[in-house]
Structure formats: structure tokens, C-alpha cells
């Protein structure tokens, strides 16, 4: 077995007296694409935040890229797409400025974009199909366009791991498909490990290697196909797993998971 790129060992996260994550042990291998599935409020976002050190576990240990999360943050090796967008509409930056932020993040002393930086920014904008809107005011873009720019910002970092919290929010069908293909390409060509939280299981299961079913506890982590036939899972997750069942049998997925 290869050493895990993200490893959680008996991780608990509690907010006051509320237990949000209970005794989670989970390993993400290099080049693995994991989908985190679970109903609203089941702790998916918290799990993602715990992986990169934004939330500290009350018990247990986390290691990411063989380092403590607090350390890894400083190196900028993680591309993160948060679920919530809390930006002020008036925030005076262009789409280009937003993507450039992730290049400036790793500046040592003087903030100046090199040619490599500019190529990375333009390349990322191009990848998400936003090159033409590079000079547009970010706040004036549509929801889906903003989402694409934020994805580009994560990509421009040239990360080793991508942590994506409901990335397909706001993307149209075409953009979703090409986004998922892109993720697969990033994994194949650059060897990224990718963790995706998604309710849109139908599409995600086409590209993922494993599924992690979360509802406070980790109820299952393995190949999507193996998640079937478990009555207990169906009991805990209800329709959320039913969708997985459905995918297994739908024509697009059968080849992948047969």
C-alpha cells in the first residue's frame, strides 16, 4: 500500500457539546479521487476543513502530505474551493485579480508576478472557459461564472491536493461535464489527489475511485460498487445512497464500476 496523502486517525470534532465528527479514521491515497457523500449537516464541510487545518480536531490526529495541517497551510500546496461564497458584491477586483491572488499567496517578499505566474493565471482562466472575462468585475459575474473563477484560482496554485466543497454548484450541465473530465485529467496528468463533496452523485460517481459516506461517523469508505446491498447504509443515508444504487445500474456508470 502506498502511504496515504491525507490520513485522519480517530478524529473527533466537537463544537461545544455537539459532536459533529465522531471517531473518523480515513486515508486518501496519492492519485485517489474521493467523493464525500452525506445528507445536509452530516459533517462533510467540517471534515474537509479538518483535513487542511481550518478546523482543529478535539481528539485524534490529522496528517496531510506527511505534515501537520497547520504547517502545510503555509506552503500553499492545497487548492481549496469553499462551499460558501461570502464575498461582498462590491469587492473591487476583476476575475484576473481573483485568480492572481493564489499566485501572490506564496510570495516571499516583494509581490510581483513573473511570467510563469501570468501563464499560470491565464492558463487556469482558459481551462475554466473564463479567459474572455478576465478583466470583468468579479462581483458582476453570474453565480456559475464566479464558481468557475474560484475553481481557476484553486488550479492556478498548481496544488498537489484539491479539496472541493460542492464544486458543481451553479455550473451548467456542459460546464459540469467538462469540469469532471478536467478533474480526471488533473489526476492522470499531474497526479493530484482530489476530495470532492458533492450531492450530485450521479456525475461524480463517473470519475471517483472511492466514496466516503459520512453522517457524523464514517459509515463507509470504498469503491462505489461495494457500497451497495448494505441495508444498514440504506437505513442511515436513505435516499442519498439510493442515488448511488441508481447510478450503478444506469448505463453511463455500468462500465466504470462493473
Amino acid at each position: 500500500m502506498e502511504r496515504p496523502i491525507i490520513a485522519l486517525n480517530n478524529v473527533w470534532v466537537e463544537f461545544g457539546s455537539i459532536i459533529v465528527l465522531e471517531d473518523i479514521t480515513l486515508a486518501v491515497r496519492p492519485r485517489e479521487i474521493v467523493s464525500i457523500v452525506g445528507p445536509n449537516g452530516s459533517g462533510k464541510t467540517t471534515l474537509l476543513r479538518t483535513m487542511m487545518g481550518l478546523t482543529r480536531p478535539t481528539r485524534g490526529t490529522v496528517s496531510i502530505l506527511e505534515t501537520a495541517p497547520a504547517e502545510i497551510m503555509r506552503t500553499g500546496r492545497i487548492g481549496y474551493l469553499p462551499q460558501e461564497r461570502r464575498q461582498d458584491e462590491r469587492f473591487p477586483v476583476t476575475a484576473y485579480d481573483v485568480v492572481a491572488m493564489s499566485r501572490f499567496a506564496r510570495t516571499a517578499v516583494i509581490e510581483r508576478l513573473t511570467r510563469t505566474d501570468r501563464q499560470a493565471i491565464e492558463g487556469a482562466l482558459d481551462t475554466v472557459g473564463m479567459a474572455d472575462a478576465a478583466r470583468a468585475h468579479f462581483g458582476s459575474l453570474s453565480g456559475g461564472q464566479k464558481q468557475r473563477v474560484l475553481i481557476a484560482r484553486a488550479l492556478a496554485l498548481n496544488p498537489e491536493i484539491l479539496l472541493l466543497d460542492e464544486p458543481s454548484t451553479g455550473l451548467d450541465a456542459v460546464a459540469q461535464d467538462s469540469f469532471y473530465l478536467l478533474l480526471r485529467k488533473l489526476r492522470d496528468e499531474r497526479g493530484l489527489a482530489i476530495v470532492i463533496v458533492s450531492h450530485d452523485i450521479g456525475t461524480v460517481s463517473m470519475i471517483v475511485d472511492t466514496v466516503a459516506c459520512i453522517k457524523r461517523k464514517l459509515h463507509f469508505h470504498g469503491k462505489p460498487a461495494d457500497c451497495l446491498g448494505s441495508d444498514r447504509l440504506a437505513e442511515v443515508f436513505g435516499k442519498n445512497v439510493y442515488v448511488l444504487h441508481h447510478d450503478k445500474n444506469c448505463p453511463t456508470c455500468r462500465d466504470d464500476h462493473a
Binding site: 476543513r49 487542511m52 487545518g53 481550518l54 497551510m73 503555509r74 506552503t75 500553499g76 492545497i78 487548492g79 481549496y80 474551493l81 469553499p82 461570502r86 464575498q87 469587492f91 477586483v93 485579480d97 481573483v98 492572481a100 491572488m101 493564489s102 501572490f104 499567496a105 506564496r106 510570495t107 517578499v109 516583494i110 509581490e111 484560482r153 484553486a154 496554485l157
Partner: peptide, 23 residues
Amino acid sequence: GLYLHRLLFMSFDEDVASTSGVR
């Protein structure tokens, strides 16, 4: 002068700024 863009990033999105390497 030294931190304009990183301050901008932090103001725009503090969580992502910190995971991207901004102190």
C-alpha cells in the same frame, strides 16, 4: 506596499488565503 495583494486575498476570502499560504 509589501502585502497589498495578500491583504486583498485575506479580505476577499480568509480561509482560502490561509490554505493557499498567506500568513
